[in-house]
Amino acid sequence: MSDSTLSISSHTLPIGPRSDSGRLILGLLSLAARELIATILVLIGASLLLFLVLKAAPSEDHLQLRLGQSTSVTAEQAGETFASETLAGQYVTWLEGVVTGDFGTSKALQRGRPVADLLKPAFFASFKLLAAGLFLSALLGLLAATLSIFRSRNPLWRITLGLTSLTSAIPVFLYVYALVAGGNRLIAWGAAQQHWQIPGWFPLPMSPDFVPWFFAVLILAVGDGSLMDMTQRFGSELRHSAGDEHMVGVRMMNISVPVVIARGFLPGALSHISRRISFVLGSLVVLEAALGWPGLGYLAWRAAAERDMPVLLGAALLMAVALRLVLMVFDLVGTAADPRRRVTK
């Protein structure tokens, strides 16, 4: 048997050779285009679902959607014409408004103010909080997962991990309650002692109330089962990507093991984080509502409590758009990192 058939070249590895990076970029672009179309279709579906849920209500809540939406006619007239339209007509009228940035006007929360004015500042505040919470959650989850795999025999770590599960099972609203009840005194005490000064080396510009903000992020990252879920999923992803049989081959061929583990881990982890966003958004609503902080979540909760449908639907749609866009980015990154997915797509 000739020698050449036996030797294994690096081309048989699951890692693609560098030369096809051009093709990768082209493939990703076409994938992005397709995903954009899918996103638009899904968002239309989401708005339809929201509209139908509202429509299914026994009351006349859906008529609020059009009240005073356009400026040329008086509120009552607009409402009347809206009521006389067919179901499809009503939906299209509403969607038209939404696409052009006209979410109608608030009915109860801040009577008469355009919903878009309420949503815009709230969105950025919430987005920062959400991103920080998710990031911290992923970081802590990764740490705990790594420890749970590499130190699984050490009883001390096992106990620590068990406590992590316990702290994570506590709902966000309880944490907030505890923070408000006990934490405020702590914060006040710290402020009096000058403990909470932002250190001079800290690179990011921070508002002075960064301590409560940081606590909020921590609550978001840990509570409502976030951390437990992250730890567990990350652990199983790590175990899969690090325990595969091909790791032996990887070592024998002198390829960097961490890189291979990371490439195997990243796609699954990203898809898990993206599945998690929807839940963390829920925690965010509870957190903002319980703390009374202005933000998209607080707005959504107040709108629901006061049955202010234009604001609630606006907030829901805005969150859906942001969620879809983030998912799209995650999917692209995951596809770029995972050769298997690139082949099958």
């Binding site: 929201l50 929807s278 958004l281 829920g282 609503v285 829901a316 998912l327």
Partner: peptide, 11 residues
């Protein structure tokens, strides 16, 4: 999946 779960529940 694209609608945040808790907000739909709020609605």
């Amino acid at each position: 999946d694209s609608l945040p779960k808790f907000v739909l529940v709020l609605l």
